[in-house]
Write a protein that binds this DNA or RNA. Structure first.
Length: 145
DNA sequence: GCCAACGTTGGC
DNA sequence: GCCAACGTTGGC
């Protein structure tokens, strides 16, 4: 099983929007970055876990845990008829757990020289909307909840 | 292939 | 609203 962190702006799609969906399941689409695309297309597996991260908001941080329930498939929001091969990919995720409180970026950052020293979103200038985590990082962050 | 201009992300 | 960081675009 692999572990991921997926960013979304709650004003566009937040954890409560996912909770309101039938079967608490939604397509994770709209990713328009080649690195992130490659991970969605090639590396995401059914059963993988991901943190749902709220970005671009008053309190950025991890809001919940989701499970990958459908592996990479062409993103219908970006089908380009000129290309035989789809350019962008989506996955489906299901909400497993909304955290009682958001684990804030500030709190994550307080461990930036310790257990989370290699966490991708803490690296300067990182804007990638999908990043992998190690199991150690995953377990440590969950222990903060 | 270089690089300036521009657009986007995302924290503050 | 500001700005740093980064990706993309397009002229050359």
């Amino acid at each position: 099983m692999k572990y991921w962190l997926m960013k979304s702006e709650p004003a566009a799609f937040g954890i409560d929007d996912l909770a309101a969906r039938p079967r608490r399941t939604a397509e994770w689409d709209g990713v328009r970055n080649f690195q992130a695309r490659n991970m969605l297309r090639d590396d995401f597996r059914k059963g993988d876990r991901a943190f749902f991260y709220h970005s671009g908001c008053a309190v950025p941080g991890i809001a919940g845990v989701v499970e990958v329930v459908r592996e990479g498939y062409p993103d219908d929001t970006a089908l380009d008829p000129k290309h035989a091969d789809p350019r962008w990919f989506a996955v489906d995720v299901r909400l497993l757990r909304k955290l009682e409180r958001v684990i804030t970026l500030q709190e994550l950052r307080s461990h930036a020289t310790g257990a989370l020293r290699d966490l991708a979103i803490l690296r300067r200038g990182n804007r990638l909307s999908i990043t992998p985590l190690s199991k150690k990082e995953w377990d440590f962050i969950l222990s903060l909840a």
